[in-house]
């Protein structure tokens, strides 16, 4: 029953994730932290952060949320739920896509949904800010600002910035500043 619940919640999130994984973070937090509750707010932030250390698609961390709920089977259900429904939809739509090549509505949908996804991704960033950064003093905000400044001026693999952020707060903790 619990496994089906995990599968159901992540399947629903999968089909709501218009604009990618970050767009659905606030809704994911309200289902896994607020409604269930399967994990705490702080755990949600930590699991998201952990996911940033892994390569590939950004939201594989749903497996870790599933693991916290129901061990390995929970991890499998979260992964299946989050990736299979949208995957099947992409498969079906990919086959139909060419037939719509000349359809003027295709442009209308792309043009209309674009700004909406920007709003969704921004809301996703703020939900992580609430779960991770609040209560940590000024240092987390300095790190985020530094990352934005570095990405705006240089081309660097984002992994080094993610790792650098972790190193900075670890050193601050060791030095007793944090």
């Amino acid at each position: 029953m619990l496994l089906l619940h995990v599968l159901g919640v992540f399947s629903m999130l999968s089909l709501l994730a218009i604009g990618g994984g970050a767009a659905v973070l606030p809704e994911m937090k309200s289902w896994t932290v607020g409604a269930a509750p399967w994990i705490t707010d702080a755990q949600f932030g930590q699991i998201y952060s952990l996911g940033q250390l892994a390569p590939g698609p950004n939201m594989l961390m749903v497996a870790v949320i599933g693991y916290h709920v129901a061990s390995w089977a929970g991890a499998a259900m979260a992964l299946l739920g989050f990736f299979v429904p949208s995957g099947l939809l992409a498969f079906a739509a990919g086959q139909a896509w060419d037939r719509f090549a000349a359809n003027p509505w295709r442009e209308a949908v792309a043009r209309g949904l674009g700004p909406m996804t920007i709003g969704l991704i921004l809301a996703g960033a703020i939900s992580i800010e609430r779960a991770v950064m609040q209560g940590g003093g000024p240092l987390p905000y300095a790190i985020a600002a530094a990352v934005i400044a570095i990405l705006a001026t240089t081309r660097v693999n984002p992994f080094f910035l993610i790792a650098g952020g972790g190193l900075a707060t670890w050193l601050a903790r060791q030095a007793g500043i944090l």
């Binding site: 940033q52 960033a125 991770v132 950064m133 940590g136 984002p158 952020g165």
Partner: peptide
């Protein structure tokens, strides 16, 4: 993880 998450917010 605090620093990792903070950097991720900047990236996002």
């Amino acid at each position: 993880l605090l620093g990792v998450g903070s950097a991720a917010v900047g990236l996002l």
